[in-house]
Nucleic acid binder design. Structure first.
Lengths: 192, 192
DNA sequence: CAAGTGTGTGAGTGCACACTTACAAACAAG
DNA sequence: CTTGTTTGTAAGTGTGCACTCACACACTTG
């Protein structure tokens, strides 16, 4: 979990670059989510963030550095949402907390950016830095789920299995398909 | 399911191009599985198939056409493997047949090509032709599983949820991670 | 005011790659 | 032998894009 504190009054002027990085990272998550790492030019991210391409390259160490940083931001937001969801659990049993977490996650990914970014990140794990970022992200989320819900291995595994199923449902657009097989796969997942 | 019949003796000479297409498709599935659609040059596929890049463009309508055709071949192979696995089921209950199918699938994706290709295809579903190919592939596999095993919606959904979990396990390399959260996610999935 | 530091950009540069075209060899049919 | 068809390639062409660099404005400090 990353807490962002405004240090404007303390470190004097340096917070501007840091603020830009936040802006760029939000733009990067959205852009990469839609078209993926290789098909997303840095100019697209720069334009979405309202700055020049050259400055993005100064703020991050190359396109790969930008993508890895965006992955970190993506998993931070997911972890935060799940954490907030756990607070809303009606009961205290592991399954009740897991269900609350799942509901919060489902709500979070309504805008699709966070979900699609995960898919895109998993697709470029042939790049070692990305693979490590993905592992770090799931480590963060999975350990939190395990600890906070007090769930056993099978419950945690099921939680992530159905989370991954959401990736298929969204990327394939199965919510728009009314055939029996698609109804079976999307049953009870929530229709946004 | 596609049955390939050698028509050499009938249509005279045309079967050579068709045979080339098969070779190219096998190379394409492997190549795209590793580096994805956008990061895989057609020259790589051509080299793996042992022919020139120009001829690949004559055999298929552009890089996209090649990718979509490879997706078809990929899902054909998956469906065939699951079908063969169902024959090996020890009992006749839906769950027993599903388990046999799952075992066959797990064995099939040991070489990772078919699994990774699915991940790569899901990552480029912003291209409509790819999205349709992915839907067609899962339609083929899901309807077969549903019909052949006689499984209910929840069982089919669970089957695919844990199938998608395999995608995460492989892309993130979780089998090599011995931390508790990773052990929970990979529990019982098979260690190849 | 001068010098330094951080923020920001326009205008390149070089390369990778999708796709084309012109051409060649093999083979068949008349 | 000529004509036509199919299989195959070498050598382009044009474009998109990652990354760089020289330069400019803002703002602080002495």
């Amino acid at each position: 979990m990353t807490f962002l504190v405004c240090e404007c009054t303390l470190t004097n002027m340096r917070s501007t670059a840091e603020a830009r990085r936040i802006t760029v990272l939000n733009a990067a998550v959205s852009a990469f989510a839609r078209t993926g790492f290789h098909a997303t030019p840095v100019t697209t991210v720069a334009a979405a963030a309202g700055i020049s391409e050259a400055y993005v390259f100064r703020l991050f160490s190359g396109k790969l550095g930008l993508f890895v940083a965006a992955a970190g931001a993506c998993f931070d937001r997911i972890a935060a949402a799940i954490e907030a969801g756990a607070e809303q659990a009606t009961g205290g049993t592991p399954q009740e907390i897991l269900d609350a977490m799942g509901a919060a996650y489902a709500e979070l990914i309504a805008d699709r950016d966070l979900l699609l970014f995960q898919v895109q990140a998993q697709a470029v794990t042939d790049i070692p830095e990305v693979a490590e970022a993905v592992r770090a992200g799931y480590r963060q989320v999975a350990t939190f789920v395990q600890d906070r819900a007090g769930a056993n291995d099978a419950q945690v595994q099921q939680f992530f299995a159905y989370g991954q199923l959401c990736h298929l449902i969204v990327t394939a657009g199965l919510e728009q398909v009314s055939e029996p097989w698609a109804r079976a796969l999307t049953a009870g997942i929530r229709h946004p």
